[in-house]
Each structure stands twice: as C-alpha cells, then as structure tokens.
Amino acid sequence: MCSVKAIEGEASFDVPAAGKPCMTWYKVYGDLTSRTHRPLVVLHGGPGSPHEYLDIFSEIYRLYSIPVVLYDQLGNGRSTHLREKNGDTAFWTVQLFIDELHNLLSHLGIHDDYALLGHSWGGMLAASYAIQQPAGLKKLIIADSPASMPLWVEVANELRKELPQDVQDALNKHEADGTIYDKEYIDATTVFYDRHLCRIHPMPKPLADSFDWMDKDSTVYLTMNGPTEFHITGSLKTWSVVDDLHKIKVPTLLINGQYDEAQDKVVLPFFKHIPNVKWVQFADSAHVPHLEETERYMLILGAYLKGD
C-alpha cells in the first residue's frame, strides 16, 4: 500500500447545551469538489473509538479515486472533548451525532450526494440517520453493527458461554462486585476481544491507537455504552431501530465477520426489513474485517460504491 495524502480540517458545530464552542475534526482523502466520484463518509465506532482504525479506507481513494471523509465525533479524538458531560445521558444522544453529521456534510459541501459507511456504533448511527431519509444519501453500508442493543447483549452472553470457565467466572465475579477495573477482569475481557473483536495478533496499531484515545477520555463510551462490549449499562442499552428499518430506501450493503461480536442474529433484522439490501460475510474475520481481510473488503466495497 502506498501512502495517500489527506487534507485535515475543523468544522464549527453549534451545540448550545455544551456550554462552549465545539468543533468536529475531519480528514479528507481526494478532491471533494471534482464530483467525478461520489464521496464516501465513514462513521467510527465505540461510541468513542475515533478514526485511526478506519484510516485503511484511504485504499478506496487509492484504488478507485473515490474521495473518503473520516472524522472524529464530538467528544472523541481530535474533536472537542466534553469531560464535564460524563454521565449526562440527556446530552449524549443519537440525535446529537446525527446533527453533527448534517453539519459536517454541509460544511464540506457534499450534503446533496454522498455514500455513508458506519462501523459498529457508527453503523447504528448510520442506520438511525438513514431512517430519517436525508435527501443526499445515495448508498449506505452498515458494517459489524447490531439493529438492536438487546439483541447485541443476548448474543454477547451466548459468546461468553463459549469462553473458558475460569474466564467466565472472572467476568461474572467482577461485574457482580463492581470491580471491573481489576486486572483479572481486564485480562478476562481480553480473551473475549481476541476471539470476537480482532483475530490479528498482536492487535494492529491503528486499532490500538483508537483504543488509546478511549483510555484518555471515556466520557462518551461510558455514558452511552458502558464499561465493555458485553456489559452494557449506558443509554444505548435499550436502543433499537428494528421497527423503523423499512424507512431506509437507499441501496444498503451489510457486512459482518464469521467470528464477529455482531453475529448473524444481530444483523438479520437489517437484512429482513431494509427493502434494497445485500449482505456479505467475511469468513476469516471478527469485528474489524476491513483490517483482517483488507484486500477482499476493499474489492467488495469498491465494486458496490462504483455500481449503479
């Protein structure tokens, strides 16, 4: 892979409830003014895991000349941080991030024609956004995402039962005792992540870098999700878009990995209820197939984006 240069910038984002000026940091691969190819906007996961682990999507520009927009959502990475809003579920809402996306698209001048890819939490956000039927959205990719958090928790508990018994015991003990920052608990979660987050060892540096940002400021993750991927205590605990998926009218590509946290059961509602949908699974991947099977991933994504 050759290096591809990017242009970085900041978009002012007016959030009165924040109590201070806010901005969204972004990075663009390619020329958004050429209009030769529809740009792809990529939404990161977490919530709270900024763009670094998605930088590989620069390959879409290198291979297909499709411009790519990455950004750090509010409270994350290089965008404005709001640690004082930790635990404020009335502030950290899905609609806040939908509003931020609208603002960024307008700032970049691409609000009338773009494709959208959301990974994990980003796919949840992308689905919520697409349900509102924004006029400029032409194609949607939902990658490694649940249609319902109750389904996500159900599947996570099923996957936990496949872990070694001593690992299960450690997880259960520390969650019951409220000692989830104990080393034994953290080590136990690592066993789960090695199976269902990323099957490349050691963890790819871009993914580790995104987690480092979350360690620096876990405000958004703890408020909306909770302490781990399978111990959901935040405001998203009851989130679901299953009943509204029929409102997504744009062509949609679903992606997951065979060993993904986002098992088939959590992806299936997208496939059943979105009218125009295609589903691709990556046989050798967990939750980040764009890192685990990059070449095949970019071929599939490029063909989908360039197709009619």
Results as ranks from 00 to 15, higher is better:
Val288Trp: 03
Trp279Leu: 14
Lys278Phe: 07
Phe270Ile: 03
Val288Lys: 02
Leu291Ala: 05
Pro275Tyr: 14
Ser285Ala: 11
Gln281Arg: 15
Glu295Met: 11
Asn276Val: 03
Pro275Asn: 07
Leu291Thr: 01
Phe270His: 04
His273Gln: 13
Lys278Val: 04
His273Cys: 04
Trp279Gln: 09
Arg296Ile: 09
Ile300Leu: 15
Tyr297Met: 04
Tyr297Lys: 04
Glu292Cys: 12
Val288Leu: 05
Val288Gln: 00
Lys272Cys: 10
Ile300Tyr: 15
His287Gln: 02
His290Gln: 05
Lys278Gln: 12
His287Gly: 03
His290Tyr: 14
Phe270Met: 09
His273Arg: 15
Asp284Pro: 00
Phe282Val: 09
Pro275Leu: 12
Leu299Asn: 12
Leu301Trp: 07
Ser285Tyr: 06
Thr294Glu: 08
Leu301His: 01
Gln281Trp: 15
Ile300Gly: 09
Thr294Gln: 14
Asn276Ile: 04
Lys272Arg: 15
Leu299Pro: 00
Asp284Glu: 12
Phe271Lys: 10
Leu299Val: 11
Trp279Thr: 00
Glu292Asn: 14
Leu299His: 14
Leu291Ile: 06
Glu293Trp: 02
Val280Gly: 03
Gln281Ala: 10
His273Tyr: 14
Ala286Ser: 06
Met298Gln: 05
Glu293Lys: 10
Val277Thr: 06
Phe270Tyr: 13
Leu301Val: 15
Glu295Gln: 12
Lys278Asp: 10
Lys272Thr: 10
Arg296Asp: 13
Phe270Gly: 02
Val277Pro: 00
Arg296Tyr: 13
Phe282Cys: 00
Val280Ala: 01
Arg296Lys: 15
Val280Tyr: 12
His273Gly: 08
Val280Phe: 13
Lys278Glu: 13
Phe282Asp: 00
Phe270Arg: 05
Gln281Gly: 12
Leu301Asn: 04
Phe282Asn: 02
His273Ser: 05
Gln281Met: 14
Ile300Phe: 14
Val288Phe: 09
Pro275Met: 14
Phe282Trp: 09
Leu291Ser: 02
Ile300Cys: 12
His290Thr: 04
Leu299Gln: 13
Arg296Leu: 15
Leu291Trp: 09
Ala283Gly: 11
Leu299Asp: 12
Val280Glu: 09
Pro275Thr: 10
Pro275Phe: 13
Ala283Glu: 15
Ala286Cys: 13
Glu293Asn: 14
Ser285Gln: 05
Pro289Trp: 02
Thr294Met: 09
Tyr297Val: 05
Val288His: 05
Pro289Gln: 03
Thr294Trp: 08
Ile274Asp: 03
Ala286Gln: 02
Asn276Arg: 10
Met298Val: 12
Val280Ser: 00
Thr294Tyr: 08
Phe271Ser: 09
His273Leu: 09
Phe271Asp: 08
Ala283Leu: 11
Leu301Gln: 11
Thr294Ala: 14
Glu295Leu: 12
His287Thr: 00
His273Ile: 02
Met298Asn: 07
Val280Asn: 04
Phe282Ser: 01
Val288Ala: 07
Asn276Tyr: 10
Leu301Phe: 04
Leu291Tyr: 07
Gln281Phe: 08
Val288Asn: 03
His287Asp: 01
Met298Gly: 02
Ala283Thr: 11
Ser285Thr: 06
Phe271Gln: 13
Gln281Ile: 06
Asn276Leu: 10
Pro275Ile: 03
Asn276Met: 08
Ile300Ser: 07
